[in-house]
Measured scan of single mutants.
Amino acid sequence: TGEEYIAVGDSTAQQVGDLTFKKGEILLVIEKKPDGWWIAKDAKGNEGLVPRTYLEPYS
């Protein structure tokens, strides 16, 4: 379980453990880390770190 967020920009994984996503994708945020990198899952079930500045709450 988690909260749904929509990507407001494209982000390409810079290192192992990062999640690549495109603008408009809905991501499920699993954990919000205080350093600004959140753990999220995409629609295909891929999981990784995403920069919170690229996400907005999805409603």
Rank of each mutant, 00 (worst) to 15 (best):
I6R: 09
P57K: 11
A13H: 10
V8R: 09
I30E: 02
I39H: 07
E4D: 06
E56F: 08
Q14W: 13
A13M: 08
V8E: 02
D18P: 06
G48C: 04
E56I: 14
G2F: 14
T20D: 07
G24D: 04
K33Q: 08
E31N: 10
K23W: 05
E47L: 14
L49Y: 12
K32C: 04
G36N: 05
A13P: 10
I30N: 02
N46F: 07
S11V: 15
G24Q: 02
Q15Y: 10
V29K: 00
K22T: 07
L28F: 12
A43D: 08
E31G: 08
E3Y: 09
S11E: 03
D35Q: 04
R52I: 08
L27S: 00
E56V: 13
Y58D: 03
L19D: 00
Y58T: 07
A40D: 00
D35I: 03
E47A: 09
Y58H: 08
T53I: 13
E56N: 06
V50E: 01
L19T: 01
G17L: 05
G2W: 14
K44P: 02
N46I: 08
Y54L: 15
A43I: 09
A40M: 14
E25Q: 12
I39C: 07
K22R: 11
D35P: 02
V8P: 03
V8I: 14
K33I: 06
V8A: 06
P51H: 15
V16W: 10
A13W: 13
K32P: 03
V8C: 12
K33V: 06
Y54K: 14
Q15N: 14
V50F: 01
A43E: 09
L19N: 01
W38G: 01
A7L: 05
T20F: 09
K22Q: 07
I6H: 03
E25K: 02
S11I: 14
V29S: 00
K33P: 07
L28W: 14
R52G: 14
P34V: 09
K44C: 14
Q14T: 13
L27W: 01
L19S: 01
Y5H: 05
Q15T: 11
D42K: 02
L49W: 10
K41M: 11
Y5I: 00
T53W: 15
L55F: 06
Q14R: 13
N46Q: 09
A13I: 08
V29P: 00
I39R: 12
E47M: 14
I30S: 04
P34R: 08
N46V: 08
N46Y: 06
F21I: 07
I39F: 11
Q14S: 12
L55R: 01
I6M: 08
A40V: 14
Y54D: 07
E25W: 10
S11D: 03
W38D: 00
I26Q: 03
Y58R: 07
T20Y: 08
L27A: 00
S59I: 13
Y5N: 01
A13S: 14
Q15D: 10
E3F: 09
V29W: 01
D18H: 15
E31P: 00
S11Y: 15
K33G: 11
K33S: 11
E25C: 07
I30K: 05
W38I: 02
G48H: 03
K23P: 02
P51S: 13
A40K: 01
S11C: 15
V16C: 11
E4V: 14
E4C: 15
D18C: 15
G9R: 15
F21Y: 05
A43S: 14
D18N: 14
A13N: 10
I26F: 05
A40N: 00
K44D: 11
P51G: 07
Y58W: 11
L28R: 09
E3P: 05
L28N: 06
V8H: 04
Y58V: 10
Y54G: 06
I26Y: 04
G36T: 03
G17A: 06
S11A: 10
K32D: 01
I30D: 00
T12L: 12
T12D: 13
E4F: 15
E47T: 14
G45F: 03
S11T: 07
G36V: 03
F21C: 02
D10Q: 05
T20Q: 11
G45Y: 02
L55C: 04
V16Y: 10
A40I: 07
I6W: 05
K44S: 11
